[in-house]
């Protein structure tokens, strides 16, 4: 009994240590965002929302936030269209050359160091004479998140019985009707979950964006620029806000995933077949 209890205690300690080292710095940033600093030390008597107020008056940051939202939504929508088409192709003709080729290639931008992806896209856009700006960032992010959406959709499609499509055709449905009434309804949850995940990835993406941005900065790029100039407590507030937003997305994702469990929402378990 004693030994068991000791084991339990050590296990709990290790767990606590891991969680603390993960979350304490984040918590610290959050706490510090409410206080001012004097000569490099925190002045604990100055609790206020002042930094946040200052943050909201900063028009450049507001623009950056809007850009981030715009880029995220647009990139996810673009990626969704291509991922859906690619996933349906891979599912209906798994042994076709195009599906096999895609299977290998689609993950490259996701797995390559972002600096490589960003640089190649930059060279491509320059050679093609396309000016850098929000559209190029959207393309970059769409390429980056395509694989994750594709994989989640394909997992769901592969979990669906092939005979559902056969049955729909057998009952007189055209390809378009089969897509609309049978395939799309079954992709609703995976589209939602992969969309949230892809949006979160896009929202945090910095390296590729740095290469592709023109004069419009996204939030992480703006943050990066601010740090280079000098660290101000304002940055703590900004990090706290981004964190809060990311947590909301994570919770939403977990919730959607939880509701979707049992109907092919599991990303890893069903991918290999």
């Amino acid at each position: 009994m004693r030994r068991l209890r000791l084991l339990d205690f050590s296990l709990a300690s290790v767990t606590a240590f891991v969680y603390l080292s993960l979350y304490l710095p984040i918590l610290l940033v959050f706490v510090l965002s409410f206080f001012s600093m004097r000569r490099g030390r925190v002045n604990w008597e100055t609790f206020s929302l002042g930094w946040y107020a200052k943050l909201f008056k900063n028009e450049a940051l507001g623009d950056a936030l809007l850009n981030s939202l715009l880029v995220g939504i647009a990139a996810v929508l673009v990626a969704m269209v291509f991922a859906t088409l690619a996933a349906i192709n891979a599912n209906s003709r798994p042994s076709s050359r195009s599906a096999q080729f895609l299977e290998y290639v689609i993950f490259l931008p996701f797995l390559l160091p972002p600096i490589i992806t960003g640089l190649s896209l930059l060279i491509y856009f320059r050679e093609a004479g396309i000016p850098r700006g929000l559209p190029t960032i959207i393309v970059g992010h769409a390429v980056f998140v395509l694989a994750i959406i594709y994989r989640i959709l394909l997992t769901r499609l592969n979990a669906l019985s092939r005979s559902l499509v056969d049955a729909a055709h057998d009952l007189g449905a055209s390809n378009l009707q089969t897509f609309r009434y049978i395939i799309l309804p079954n992709l609703r949850m995976p589209l939602l979950t992969s969309g949230i995940l892809a949006f979160a990835l896009s929202f945090d993406e910095t390296m590729i964006t740095l290469f592709l941005t023109g004069t419009d900065a996204t939030l992480p790029v703006r943050l990066y620029a601010m740090i280079r100039v000098g660290f101000t407590p304002e940055i703590n507030a900004l990090i706290a806000l981004i964190l809060g937003f990311s947590i909301i997305l994570t919770v939403a994702l977990a919730y959607a995933w939880g509701r979707n469990s049992g109907s092919g929402g599991n990303l890893i378990a069903k991918t290999s077949k």
Partner: peptide, 30 residues
């Protein structure tokens, strides 16, 4: 989808997101 007969599948192939009524009515709906 233009062949004049219908199939009952081994695994039934019922549409999981549709009720019994929607499943049965599918052929007429399309």
């Amino acid at each position: 989808n233009r062949r004049p007969f219908n199939t009952v599948f081994q695994d039934y192939a019922l549409f999981p997101h549709m009720t019994v009524r929607e499943n049965v009515g599918f052929g007429l709906r399309v």
